[in-house]
Computed example of a mutant assay.
Amino acid sequence: MAARRMTFRHIEAFRAVMVTGSMTEASRRLHTSQPQVSRLIAQLEAITGLPLFDRSGSRVIPSLDGTRFHAEVERAFVGLTSLEAAATRIRAFGAEQLRVAAMPRLAGGLLARAVVRFRVAHPDVIVAIHSGDDETVDHWIATGFCDAALTMLYGDVPEGRLDHVETRACVAVLPQDHPLADRAALGPEDFRGVPFVATSLGSALRDRTEAVFDAAGIPLTITAEAGLGASICTLVSAGLGVSVMNPLAAHEEAKVSPIAIRPFAPALPVHFALLFPPDHARGRLMRAFGACARAVLLEELAVLPDAVPRRPAS
């Protein structure tokens, strides 16, 4: 008897359960029965050989394997979504569309404002905004799923498909009542033995930060980790430690979180830039959107306190 093979129906059920956290809710979303969804999930676990969920009464909780498998599923669906979007554009007699991306902090603010400005001049163009972590955004651009992205890069600026806008230096963030808040500027020596909230392990900022502290001979006393700037600032404001992060996110979060911001040296540069797919021909619309995004980004950076020298695009 031939082994059962994975089908689209299996993946559709899996995604629905991941989103809803319930076999019953997933069945409603898929307009099928709860037993049918349960069978599909059981079959998928047998096919993959992975325990995708931990059952707890009527709720199902993704296992570690399930979470990792879901990340791969979502990557695969990027291609499928791209095909669906292409079909939609064809049905609309070639209506033009741009797909743009950024990490959540940029997508919800800067990128959205760039889209608004772009649409004033190009009201007939459909613009879709996608947000994800830096690795996901880079994947979307590398595969051509998205036409452009606003990005922040730490370290050297790569050549080729990236248009550099401006470079700033990362800043130190700490609770407003922290003893170090009395100092005008901070460096690695000031953080010796001080609890530190780090970015996620493996991120570019984490690698760069550790390199700066290693060079100074100061071990980081990491007490918490977070992937998003908003989460880092929440942990810092709650007194869990200090941190180092990009100035745009820091000053945005300072509007809602009680944190102090100070210059940090040696400089840990962050490059704000526009990213495009490789070998992508930038037509009139893409150039127009790039100009809007660049202008909005420069306006936002211009109002930040000029704590450190800036380096504009050459």
Rank of each mutant, 00 (worst) to 15 (best):
H10L: 09
E12Q: 14
A13C: 12
V19H: 13
T24G: 01
S27R: 05
S27N: 04
R28P: 00
L30S: 04
T32D: 05
S33D: 07
S38K: 03
R39A: 11
L40M: 12
I41F: 01
I41H: 03
A42R: 10
Q43F: 05
Q43R: 09
E45N: 02
A46K: 07
I47H: 03
T48M: 02
L50P: 00
P51F: 00
R55T: 08
S56F: 09
S58M: 06
V60G: 06
I61R: 13
P62I: 09
L64N: 04
G66S: 05
T67D: 06
R68D: 07
A71D: 14
E74L: 15
A76L: 14
F77D: 15
F77C: 14
V78C: 13
G79W: 08
T81G: 15
E84H: 08
A87G: 10
T88Y: 10
R91L: 14
R91C: 11
F93M: 15
V100D: 06
M103F: 09
P104Q: 03
G108D: 05
L110C: 12
L111F: 10
L111Q: 12
L111D: 14
A112G: 07
A112S: 15
R113Q: 15
A114R: 08
R117T: 12
R119Q: 13
P123D: 04
I129R: 06
I129Y: 08
H130M: 05
G132H: 07
G132E: 04
D133V: 06
E135I: 13
T136Q: 15
V137Y: 11
H139E: 14
I141F: 03
C146H: 08
D147M: 10
L150S: 04
M152Y: 06
L153G: 11
L153Q: 15
Y154K: 00
G155T: 02
G155R: 03
D156F: 02
V157L: 15
P158I: 11
G160V: 07
L162T: 12
L162N: 02
L162G: 01
T167L: 02
R168N: 10
A172G: 13
R183H: 06
G187L: 07
E189C: 02
D190W: 03
D190F: 04
F191Q: 04
V197Y: 11
V197F: 13
L201F: 12
L201Q: 14
S203R: 01
A204I: 00
R208N: 10
A215Y: 02
A215M: 00
P219L: 03
T221P: 00
T223C: 05
T223Q: 10
A224C: 09
C233D: 09
T234P: 00
V236P: 12
V236D: 04
A238H: 05
G239C: 02
G239E: 02
V242W: 03
S243H: 06
S243T: 07
N246F: 06
A250V: 02
A250S: 02
E253W: 14
A254S: 13
V256I: 14
R262D: 10
P263Q: 12
P266H: 11
A267W: 12
L268P: 13
V270S: 12
V270W: 12
L274I: 09
L274M: 11
P277C: 10
P278N: 10
M286E: 13
G290H: 04
A291N: 03
L297S: 09
E300W: 01
V303Y: 06
P305M: 09
D306R: 01
A307H: 07
